[in-house]
Design a protein around this nucleic acid. Structure first.
Length: 311
DNA sequence: AACCTTTTCAACCGCTTTGTC
DNA sequence: GGACAAAGCGGTTGAAAAGGT
């Protein structure tokens, strides 16, 4: 949940650094006024040189704090909202490749921040490892991800694309992990998963025909339109129709056909047949977190088999 | 409705890397 | 090449929301 940015002065959070009376530096949640100041200053002068930027803008914040706020929250191309199936798949794959190098992983997910990916990993993925009582870095858990979780994600992506009329372009064979293992490192050429082509943002953008999302396009549009125009109200500073800094779901696609939450992607699977147990129209968008369903008896059996195989 | 627990994620901290003089 | 500052990164924290009883 986002901080309530409508609250100008957050009680308790708007503390000053205790030993910074001279500097009068603030910390804690950013206020709407501070956001506007930062947005307008960067619109006029550009980003970088964060310490001097903070001073020049009149923000009583450290440069680090300004940088973080801008990169993780205020930047026009920050993509907010649920991690899509494709993104989940990418994160799992990239994490198996890069480990906890979140900024590296974030390069492949345009608009996503390292912080967001890190939070996703810690709250969702590590949670399951904990439930399975195994280490997130253990071979067992990695195998479960690779041979169970990821293939099903691929199936879910295929199912949702075909249900929505879009051409399904992902094939499950060979395993994505195999591709990743032999793929060239980023910076370099993006790796291609059939029609999905991923690459570090900036260097090589996503070019997969079906990977273009409405978020991407709106983010790109807002990014381009972001100029030196002064913003006087955060509601003017829209990201896809919902102002950045607003609470709730800033993602314009929330609840729309074709994008499933992580939880739903798992709960909609029929674990016996490994197929969606309902039509796409029946997906529970933004329902409760039922992702735990994924880790049912069958999956536990799979894991146990993995464990016994390794003995 | 009230209380407690769990989950989420923005923001901070401290360390490392990079840039500048 | 050493010293310092700034930027970048990953780990951690804690407030608020959501969920459960």
């Amino acid at each position: 949940m986002d901080m309530d940015m409508e609250t100008s002065e957050i009680s308790g959070g708007s503390c000053k650094l205790q030993n910074d009376d001279e500097l009068d530096l603030r910390r804690g949640p950013w206020t709407v006024d501070e956001d506007l100041t930062l947005i307008n200053y960067i619109a006029a002068h550009g980003e970088g040189r964060w310490n001097s930027l903070a001073r020049s803008a009149g923000l009583k914040r450290t440069g680090k704090s300004c940088r973080l706020r801008w990169l993780n929250y205020l930047r026009p191309d920050v993509r907010r909202g649920n991690i899509t199936l494709e993104e989940q798949l990418l994160i799992l794959e990239l994490h198996s490749r890069y480990g906890n190098r979140w900024s590296k992983i974030a390069q492949y997910l345009p608009g996503r921040t390292d912080n967001e990916i890190k939070n996703y990993w810690r709250t969702r993925v590590q949670k399951h490892a904990k439930q399975l009582k195994c280490d997130v870095n253990s071979k067992q858990f990695k195998d479960t991800m690779r041979y169970l979780w990821m293939p099903r994600l691929v199936e879910r992506i295929q199912a949702s694309s075909s249900a929505s009329g879009a051409a399904a372009t992902i094939s499950v064979s060979p395993p994505l992990s195999t591709i990743a293992a032999t793929a060239t490192a980023p910076n370099h050429a993006p790796y291609n998963y059939n029609n999905f082509e991923f690459g570090p943002a900036g260097a090589s953008q996503v070019t997969g025909s079906n990977y273009t999302t409405t978020e991407n396009s709106s983010a790109a549009a807002s990014s381009e339109s972001f100029g030196s125009t002064q913003v006087s109200d955060l509601t003017e500073y829209y990201y896809g129709g919902v102002p950045i800094g607003n609470t709730g779901n800033p993602n314009p696609d929330y609840g729309q056909t074709g994008e499933l939450s992580y939880s739903d992607s798992m709960s909609s699977l029929d674990m016996q047949t490994m197929k969606p147990n309902n039509s796409c129209s029946n997906y529970q968008y933004w329902g409760g977190d039922t992702s735990d369903n994924f880790w049912n008896v069958e999956n536990m059996m799979f894991l146990q088999q993995q464990l016994s195989d390794n003995m």
